[in-house]
Simulated assay, not measured.
Amino acid sequence: MPQTETPDIEAASRARLRWWTELPLILLVYACYSAGRLLARGDVSSAVDHGLTILRVEKFLHINAEHPLNRLFTREAWLGIPADFWYASLHYLVTPAILIWLFRSRSAHYRAARTWLMTSTFIGLIGFTLLPTCPPRLLSAGHGFVDTMAQYSSYGWWGGEASAPRGMGGMTNQYAAMPSLHVGWALWCGVMLWRHGRTPAAKAAGVIYPLVTTIVVMGTANHYFLDAVAGAAVMGVGFLLAPLVNRAADHAKAAFADRSGSVPSISGVAPVSEVSAVSEASAVSRVSGTSGGSSPSAAPGDARAPIVSGGCQTSTGERIPRQRDARFGSGAEPSASPTDAGDGAPAPAR
């Protein structure tokens, strides 16, 4: 069954998260991702050797699915062109769209999901640095791959250097193939849609999107099958580490608040002053909200006992049923007026 959040949880999560703090954080992580891809270029010959090693392992295990897919996308333009658009755009559109959707509609789950994505991305950057890998499309023609991005470049904004716009190929690292964060991010999006989507269409998209992305990255010769497997593994490790990262962030916030002399509100727990104010308000409401409409007697010696109807006055001659009358103690309404004997005639003078 789809998971739902109560309004109280949603409101508490929204109170702790603000878009003007989340947006710079996400932009910082993406800048690190882009810079890491550029800095981790590595040696081209080493990258080619790593790519050939992966290809040999796949052939030995008979899992080199990228070969038949690449031949199909090269031969059938009606498949190859949409696949190139898919590869060049959705990676940068769907992921932020899912983040915004979680922030606005599933805020109780947003922080954990965001931390999972960012932790996995940093792990991927480590992989780019330690294992620069030449993608299939950059291997020599004798290995049987065709660069569909270059073949169909006239249909899109990209040139012959990955999915970067024409003239900006130098701003991307073409040897950052292992692991495939295209597949990793798509898997994250699929899990979010499956877990938090409330319609069958959303859950179906959660299954289709990562599967199609995996086929696309292999068919366009941008990744090996093992790159896709590594991308999924990176997301798994990031999922396990995300709770630890969140706890470390909470401890860091608490330590910073202690040094600055303020009382933090962690995990939705209100500060002591707010709890005291709520308790005091509850006590006042219990004193003034007695049953039967009668107010409690003032404590001995207390000249300022709380008055239920303080500030509320009636017009001359107007009486409210069972209203307390100063002339008759705190009992019920008198049965007759002191000037009325019950028959409408004035009472005899005493």
Rank of each mutant, 00 (worst) to 15 (best):
T148K: 06
H143L: 11
A108C: 06
G142F: 07
T129N: 03
L130G: 10
S120D: 05
C134S: 08
A150R: 09
T121A: 04
C134T: 08
F122I: 15
L131R: 01
H143Q: 06
F145E: 04
S140Y: 09
L138C: 14
C134V: 01
H143D: 08
A113Y: 13
T119A: 11
H143A: 12
Y110C: 13
G144V: 09
P135W: 01
L130D: 02
P136M: 10
L138W: 02
L117C: 15
T119N: 07
G124W: 00
T119R: 00
L138E: 02
F145M: 15
C134G: 02
Y152K: 07
W116G: 02
S120G: 14
C134Y: 00
T121Y: 01
P136Y: 15
I126G: 15
L117I: 13
A150T: 13
W116R: 01
F145W: 13
T133H: 03
H109E: 12
T115L: 05
F128I: 01
H143S: 02
A141K: 14
T133Y: 00
C134E: 03
Y152T: 07
L117P: 06
A113T: 06
L131A: 00
M149Q: 12
T119E: 04
G142H: 09
T148L: 12
S120H: 11
R111Q: 12
F122D: 02
S140E: 12
